[in-house]
Simulated scan of single mutants.
Amino acid sequence: MSSLTRLRRRILTPDVGQTKISTRGFHLKDEQARERLETVGSSFLHGYGAAAEASGPAEAAPSVEATPAAYRGFAYEGAAMAFAIRDALPGRPRHVARFLADHDEHVYMAYVGVGWAMARLPRLLWHRLYAPDPLLRWLVLDGYGFHEAYFKTDRYVRQRRRPSTFAWPADGPRDYSVRAIDQGIGRACWFVAGTDPEQLVRLLDAFPVDRRRDLYAGAGLAVCYAGGASERELNWLAECAGTYRPDLAQGASFGAAARLRAGLVLPHNELATRVLCGMSVSDATRVTDEARVGLPQDDVLPAYEVWRQRIRNAFDPSPATRKLSEQ
């Protein structure tokens, strides 16, 4: 490793101590949950560090790929964040474009990682962020919301603040941006709750009612993708979610699709989709794929939200939803 790459890694890479549960002040359910969540954080920073010091995506890939399957997606997320930050610096080497071209199977986590970079970059550099897919680009704001809730927990979770408007993407339905951010905040709440469903529900139900569907959906994604809950806990969560259970299922199906596409499906993913979606990971992914067919162009609602609503409706057994879906 050259002195330049060592210096670049030291300057760009956050302190791993910032991912400790005790540092963040998150709920501690038990030692197993603490180890899981802190390993998520250290894996993210491992990927970030590999990308910060590498000459490009090809050089970073072996180190990122060596991360255990349970945490490999988080390493790719961290790598995407680092490449996005490097792309925003003078020179614009287009690392993220090459990273996505080489690792399309991790596209969901990569877009979320770009959102982490957004949270660390001045707004005047946001136009340099690479997120070309008009459907998946909303995951960038999911990543932004997760970052803010994870590192500014008092403001975004306990005080329940959010931006009134958000100037990204420039050509998208502006009013939807804060909803995509809420999905990331909900995902972060699974970490703030220490993978404890009772703590999670307490956090989410303290938010205004009009925000909860997006928050529960984000939480469902984290519950499935990151794991940390037992079957008993998942059954309790599904029951206590009440009217938001289809939102939990929608998020869990997104987590399942991300895992399956990357070839990283593990038992905790199958458990989550079985309880929250009533089906396997592959079947939950099929729901997301079928809902994606024939999406309209962005309008008042982006196609991304129409996609999410179709998935939610597929998991909603209420007669009103069935009637609407048949029309």
Rank of each mutant, 00 (worst) to 15 (best):
Q159S: 11
A58W: 05
A33K: 03
A51Q: 09
W168V: 06
A149F: 06
L135G: 00
R120G: 00
G242A: 06
L276R: 10
A117P: 11
Y176K: 01
A58Y: 04
E35F: 01
I85L: 14
L200A: 06
A291P: 05
S22P: 00
Y108Q: 06
E59I: 06
A52Q: 06
L7C: 05
A252W: 07
P302N: 05
L136F: 15
A66C: 03
R123W: 08
G294M: 07
A110L: 10
L124K: 13
E148V: 10
G194P: 13
D154L: 14
R137H: 06
P14D: 10
D175S: 09
D289H: 08
R24E: 01
R24Y: 05
R161H: 15
T243M: 04
T67I: 03
C189R: 04
D133F: 13
R322W: 10
I185A: 07
L37A: 02
L45D: 04
R212D: 11
A66V: 03
A320N: 12
Y76W: 15
V223F: 01
T5E: 13
P57N: 08
A193I: 07
Q250T: 07
A110W: 06
N235L: 14
I311Y: 09
T195G: 02
L135C: 00
T67M: 04
L271E: 09
L215V: 09
C277N: 11
E53F: 03
V223H: 07
L234V: 13
H268F: 05
T39H: 03
L234N: 02
A167Q: 14
R312C: 11
P319V: 08
R213Q: 13
G228K: 01
S3C: 01
E233S: 02
A238C: 03
A238I: 03
T321W: 07
E38S: 03
R322Y: 07
Y71F: 14
R212H: 11
S55V: 14
V287D: 00
S63D: 06
F146P: 00
R312L: 06
E53C: 11
A69R: 11
F254W: 15
S318F: 05
D283N: 08
E290W: 10
Y244Q: 10
S22Q: 11
P267Q: 01
I185K: 12
T285H: 09
F315K: 11
H103M: 01
V287C: 07
K323I: 10
V96R: 11
M1K: 07
A110V: 15
G218E: 09
R10W: 15
L271H: 10
E270D: 15
A229R: 03
D15W: 09
R292S: 04
A54L: 13
T19H: 05
T23C: 04
E290F: 06
M279Q: 15
L37T: 04
S230H: 02
E198Q: 14
P122Q: 10
Y76H: 15
D15G: 01
A131G: 12
L7T: 13
E53A: 15
A54D: 04
L200W: 04
